[in-house]
Amino acid sequence: MANYPPKLAEALEDFSYITTRPERQEYLIQLADEFKDVKVPPSVATQPYDESHRVPACESDAFVWAVDQPDGTLKFYFDVLNPQGLSAMAMAVILGRSFDGVPLEEIAAVQPDIVFDFFGKDISMGKGQGLMGIVNMAVYEAKRRLK
């Protein structure tokens, strides 16, 4: 975690203090409510989206875009087509706020199991895979530019 993007490390630390499931859920719902902040604008993509941006294994129909910035960093955008995909929206907000404008090496170091630090371990396997898929896709965008 030492080499993680600072905002992600900060968010992970915040969640580490959460002790109850309702508190965790409330925090994540608040994040999901802010999804509009990271939602893909029409200038980047419009529906129907290119399937190459679809997150495999995500049952909430999540999509990820990484747009190259002049300084060599990335700006991330997301969409979640299932309006009930609150967890996917919350994950997108966490990643968007943590990954925008940070060195690609920091993003590339992020492991998908951060999902369980945010959502706890008592989520279904399918849900865990879907959320890890969102992380993996964002991380992959950084990794492929580093090759």
Partner: peptide, 22 residues
Amino acid sequence: NEDPLLYPSGHIPGAVEVDWTT
């Protein structure tokens, strides 16, 4: 639900939650 955030975000009045994992 599959998504554990949905029930606490709002549910049918009087409905209880049965969570698969817990």
